[in-house]
Amino acid sequence: GPIVLQTYRAIADYEKSSTTEMALKAGDMVDVVEKSENGWWFCQLKNKRGWVPAAYLEPMDGPDESEEQEPNYAGEVYKVQKSYTAVEEDELTLKEGDTIEVIHKLLDGWWVIRKDETTGYYPAMYLQKGGEVDT
């Protein structure tokens, strides 16, 4: 059958920072073609196509609760694939090779993770599944 694309509305203006992205104006209605786990969604708007941050989109058909996983407080072990230095207060700074636990996989690509006793946000695209918890 035909593929029915989900329509989302831009909640704020977005300036693109690379060629494969698509700029948005608040209120733009986009069709989502592909949802990447890392928080970039491939969208189309009229004759334009490109990647858009999921955090800038809200669903037209009510809340997206069905898609978002519940937090898993037990944690799921991941390894840090790429270092990142926190910019916001609620983010974590980690080094490549660190082992952490993912507690909540958010659709915007910023996952809640735990390292030792500290929790914070970290980019999902810099994490790789698997590994042993450091003790």
Binding site: I11, S36, D108, Y121
Partner: peptide, 22 residues
């Protein structure tokens, strides 16, 4: 086939336009 997503993390949600809760 689509191009690969950008290699940088997406921006955090816009501060003054949080997703509305129902």
């Amino acid at each position: 086939t689509f191009k690969q997503p950008p290699s940088n993390p997406p921006p955090r949600p816009p501060p003054d336009a949080r997703k509305k809760q129902p």
